[in-house]
Structure formats: structure tokens, C-alpha cells
Amino acid sequence: MTFINQLANPTRFMALSSGLLPWIAGLSGILFIVGFYGAFFSAPADYQQGETIRIMYIHVPAAWLAMFFYSLMTISAIGALVWRHPLAEVAQKAAAPIGASFALICLLTGALWGRPMWGTYWVWDARLTSMLVLLLIYLAIMALWRTIDEPTQAGRAVSILTLVGFINIPIIKFSVDWWNTLHQPASVFRMNGPTIHPSMLWPLLVCAVAFSLFAVALHLVAMRTEIMRRRIRTLTILAADRAEQPGATPGMMARGPAE
């Protein structure tokens, strides 16, 4: 808990993230090479889906990350609403475009996988529709952030919308069990273990870790940017206030957490 409290301090976060970023990005790059080597040169074609199974190595991690970043935003929303933690709002805002991008990748690759396998790019079934709804929720959240100028007010409104939208996450996960769908059921995270052959499973897991580390690196950069944006806003407001006071100098402005 002490570590989390220390990490949640913006100044400490800036210092720690600065040191971690090159390592996370570098490790992600190495794992991408290993994962894609496994996906294209080691893993066999599927006995039913043939070579189109290669799409799985980007489609599945994208789907996981789209749901992961929304869950992260939900936890941050609770942190922002309950504990009023400034870094929770920052983490929440920085996560939205990243989660939206992975939802978009999931939908695009799913459509390109669906055409040769199902004979159609799109069908309004539960899994595909709920993933589209997730993308729309992400876009609504990003729009709401831009609609309200004051970051704390925007954070509160976005947190409530995020919490309401979280209902869609279990719907995505269990849609293949609750309704008849063209989409295959869960084949990795199952009670009885994965149904994928190990020769296909290991490249999938390596690609998933590579994508995850890359997304975390982007999230850290986006969080650092948001901290700077808030410091710029504070400095600008203080400078404007000071300019209105006679005889005051802008050099008296408070210093914030950014580097």
C-alpha cells in the first residue's frame, strides 16, 4: 500500500515512469519479434481455418486489451470518485484512446477474419455488437473529456459514465455463452484449461504480453503528458491571476510535478 501511495504521487510517478519506459518498450519490441516469429514460422495452420488463424495473434490480444483498458478505467474511476486521487483521473483519461484503438483493431481484424471464415465481414450477433458498443462508449468518454473544460468536473462526469459503461464488459465476455453466435466460445481462459494446441498457444501468449507491454508504455507516456497538461493549465491560470494583481510578478508562481 505504501508503494502504491508513493507511486500515486505525481512527482514520484514522473521519475519512476521515466526510468521504466525504455525497459518496457524494449522488452515489448523483443517479445514482438519472438511472438510474430512463432505466429508465422513455428505455429502450424489450423485444420479448419487454415492460414487465417494467423489473424488470431493480433485479434485476440487486441480484444483482451480493449477490455483490460476499460477495466483499468473503471478502477481509476472508483479511485477518482471515492478517494479523489489526481493520478486516478490522469490514468483514466490517458487510457481511453488506447483502449479505443485496441477495440478498433479487434473489430477490423475480426471483420477481415470473418469474411473468409463466415462469408461476411459483419453480423449483428452478441459478441460483435457488444464489442462495437465498447468502441462507442470509449468514443463517448473521449468526447466527454473534451466537452468540459475544468478537469475535475470532467473527471467526475467521465467516472460516472465509465462506471455505467462497465456493464458491457461481462456482456462481451459471456456473450458467446449466453446467446447463439457465429463467434467461437472462449478457448484460452477456461475452467478446464485452454483448448488451443500449445504450438499455437505460446506465440499467442507472447504476442499478448508484447502488445500489453507496448500499450502500458503508451499509457505511461500519455499519463506523463496529461500531468504536464494539468501543470500548464495551473501555471497559465496563476499567471493570469497574477497579471490582474497590481505590482505582482509572474515569478511567484508555484512549481508543480512535471520535469
Binding site: 492460414e51 494467423r54 484512446p97 483493431i105
Partner: peptide, 26 residues
């Protein structure tokens, strides 16, 4: 390099679309 067969367009298209989205975001 493994031969991607008759569905190469869809496989390569998926990877290109992913690369484009990730590159734009980055």
C-alpha cells in the same frame, strides 16, 4: 516465410490495419 494461401489478402490486411492504427496512436 510460410505461404499464406488463398486468404493472404485478409491476413496481410489485418496486420496492415493493426500497424496503421498502432502507428497513428503512437
Amino acid at each position: 516465410m510460410t505461404a499464406l494461401g488463398p486468404h493472404a489478402f485478409f491476413i496481410i490486411g489485418s496486420y496492415l490495419a493493426t500497424f496503421a492504427v498502432i502507428a497513428a496512436l503512437t
